[in-house]
Design a protein around this nucleic acid. Structure first.
Lengths: 148, 148
DNA sequence: CCTTGCAGCTCTAGTCGCTAGAGAGATTAG
DNA sequence: CTAATCTCTCTAGCGACTAGAGCTGCAAGG
């Protein structure tokens, strides 16, 4: 049986994060030692590694909860799994597209700066006047990231 | 003088967000009508448009605070402005790179799925075993987005 | 003049996925 | 046995809002 610190080392998930996952029900409540410390077995380690990996791929915790639920039903067709993964791919792609538009605009803006005084700075000027922009980068979609 | 709702329409910033910006000191405290309602003039509208545009480009509020402070010192050289914009560009670029790595991995994973039963699903399997991945997509940097 | 209904007010709490800190108790190496 | 390190619970904070409760203001129609 592993202590929480050991599990943390083996999976790369920080100790408070493991406790947080337990708190929100993503990890089951751990067994406890006589002194009330959490103990983990192989199943818990597999589950946590799965979560870690899915988080690394940007899946939100709710999607991971669904994936974990599905992986416990090995006889079902994997349509739902596929759908979740495709949705995640679509999210990632739209974020990339949005960020590339921002990259373009920032490069244009920075390229025009003559490094003079702020009064003549193109960066400040462009920020103050959206009409000077090439694209409509108005929040067409959310580019919030999955954190971590 | 504009009401908060009118200002919201003209700038595309939602009413609660305007109040939030005032609360955190990004917008100055607005004048008030006799009935305690906020009133805005042209300067406030310009300032809010600037904020909106910078947010659209993904600048965090703290950077915007700095940019606003700098734009009030028109005689200074624009070195600091340039640095903030370049830092933002670097942030955007690293997010793009990370997201593209995730995109690759997701595509590979989804492409391998034979649409059979969950027991044989490659998606679930790959998520459970990081060894099956092409890249080290372990959180090398933060891909959190600027929201909105 | 009076109602109706939208707009605005303040304040609190929730979102996501953690992270940090306080102050206590458990375990382990020497 | 002691000292150092882990672990425990609990609360609060991050960024950038968003949602809701429960008020008041104000303009237009009858």
């Amino acid at each position: 049986m592993l202590s929480i610190g050991r599990l943390s080392q083996e999976t790369g998930v920080k100790v408070p994060t493991i406790r947080y996952y337990e708190q929100i029900g993503l990890m089951p409540a751990a067994e406890r030692s006589s002194g009330n410390q959490r103990l983990y077995g192989a199943a818990a380690r597999r589950r946590l590694s799965f979560i870690r990996h899915a988080r690394d791929l940007g899946f939100p915790l709710e999607a991971i909860r669904d994936l974990l639920g599905l992986s416990d039903q090995p006889d079902q067709p994997c349509t739902a799994v596929d759908a979740i993964a495709r949705a995640q791919l679509a999210t990632i792609r739209s974020r990339i597209a949005r960020l590339q538009a921002l990259e373009d605009e920032l490069m244009r803006m920075i390229g025009q700066c003559a490094h003079g005084k702020i009064a003549e700075c193109r960066v400040i000027e462009v920020l103050g006047d959206h009409g000077q922009c090439a694209h409509d980068h108005h929040g067409t979609f959310d580019d919030a990231g999955p954190g971590r």
